[in-house]
Amino acid sequence: MTEIPMLLATSGFDTFVQTLFKALALGSLYSMLALGFVLIFKATQTVNFSHGALALAGTWFLSMLFIDWDIPGRFIPGPSWLHWGIALLLAMTVTALFGLIIERLTIRPMIGEPIFSMAVITLGLEVIIRVIADDAVRLTPRALGIPWGSDTFSLGGALVAWSYVAAVVMAALVFFAVWRFLRTRTGVAMQATAFDQEAALAQGINVGMIFAIAWAAGSALAAAAGIFASMSPWAAAGVASREGAFFAFRALPAVIVGGLDSVVGALAGGMLIGFVEIFAGQYLSSYANILGFGYQQVIPYVVMLIALLIKPYGLFGTEEVRRV
């Protein structure tokens, strides 16, 4: 995740196409992570700082299921890409269950407490999950058995990795699912809860259930984002320890730029940050000796600071009305 290798391209236009695909892919990853943050923020009014650790845990679950235990493969026949797809869903489910347990034990008792206490609880959880997952992953990256590996295809003169396409497709699926969900009865209930927990409770909405759903969905999204971020051009095609957990912190600017409570904001913010990061990485690389090695990784934070100076609640965030 630290180094994004530059694929060789011949002409300026091909470079542009390659950069565009890469930016779309990174933007999708950031959007997926941001969506997880937004869902949990919408329901519980808190930022889940343990998102990255959950992503790391989800990736490790996939590696355990698919590589170590050969889970769908030992029960059903079929091609390996199908097995991998089932294992991916299973890993997301396991992470969702994990999120449910966390929510029930540590977040539910905090309903009505100051939101910062809840945010700090998630910081504590981040430490615990990251250390345990880090310890379980050990020093060498674990294999994930991704069906398309590090294959690429050429589009004109440009080389595009299949994992870019996969990330974009996954993000599109996820956003469609969430968009549909927010229009169901439960989804509307979640929006009501986000607006006012007490009023929602008085209307007969099961607020605890909404918390649980949000955490399960957020954890599953974290797992998906973590897995798709562990593919060949971003990482050494495996579960990276620690780095994986910190990847999610780089999506925080996306959430802030888009607005903490907006699904559209998550998409826009994620894409904006992804595009700025990749295009700056490609087209400013001749100034790297002035900007410093790895400058593209701090660009999200700089964009965030500038965006906050202009719009303190993000592009699509709801402005807080303060009463005295």
Binding site: V47, I115, A119, F249, L252, I256, L260, M304
Partner: peptide, 10 residues
């Protein structure tokens, strides 16, 4: 609030 926490995290 949390916006400040994340800004300073940056």
């Amino acid at each position: 609030g949390l916006y400040l926490a994340i800004t300073t995290l940056g």
